[in-house]
Simulated scan of single mutants.
Amino acid sequence: MDKHIIRTRDLDWSALQSGRHPFNPDSEMKMARLGDQTGMKRVLTNLVRLPPGKESFIAHSHAVEEEFIFVLEGAGQVMLDGEAHQVGPGDFIGFPTDGVVHGLRNTGTADLLYLAAGERARVEVAEMPSIGKTAVFRPGRITMFGDDGVEELTPEEWGARSRLP
Rank of each mutant, 00 (worst) to 15 (best):
P51D: 02
H62W: 10
I131K: 05
E151W: 05
F92D: 07
I131Y: 11
V125W: 08
G146A: 14
D10L: 12
P155D: 12
S61T: 10
P22E: 03
Y114H: 08
R120A: 06
F23R: 01
T143M: 10
D81Y: 06
V43N: 08
T109C: 08
W13V: 12
E67S: 13
E119P: 00
H60Y: 09
R161M: 13
K41P: 10
A121C: 11
N46H: 05
T8L: 13
E157A: 13
A135L: 15
L11A: 13
G159E: 12
P165E: 15
Q17R: 12
V100W: 03
G118V: 08
K133W: 06
L153F: 03
F95A: 09
M128Q: 10
H60G: 04
V43A: 11
D12C: 12
E152I: 03
N24A: 07
L104Y: 05
V64R: 02
R138H: 09
T109F: 06
D2I: 05
I131F: 07
L80I: 15
L164K: 03
E151M: 13
R105A: 05
A75P: 07
G53V: 12
P22V: 02
V150I: 15
K30M: 07
D36E: 15
A15W: 02
N106Q: 06
L104I: 11
G94E: 13
V100C: 10
T107W: 04
G149R: 11
L34E: 01
T97P: 04
R141T: 14
M1W: 11
K133T: 15
E73T: 14
F92S: 10
S18H: 03
R20S: 01
P51K: 02
M144R: 02
A32R: 01
G140H: 13
Q17P: 02
L11D: 01
P89G: 08
D148P: 00
P129I: 05
G88R: 10
T45I: 09
G118C: 05
L112R: 04
T134V: 15
Q37R: 10
M144Q: 07
V64G: 00
I131S: 08
W158D: 01
N46L: 01
H4I: 09
G159M: 14
G118E: 08
L115V: 13
G74L: 02
F137I: 05
V64P: 00
V78F: 07
V87D: 00
H85I: 04
G118T: 07
S27L: 05
I5Y: 14
V64L: 05
P51Q: 03
V87T: 02
G76I: 04
I6D: 03
H21T: 04
R122D: 12
L72N: 04
R122Y: 06
G74H: 00
A160K: 15
E151I: 15
L44M: 14
P165D: 14
M31T: 06
A75E: 12
M144A: 05
F137R: 00
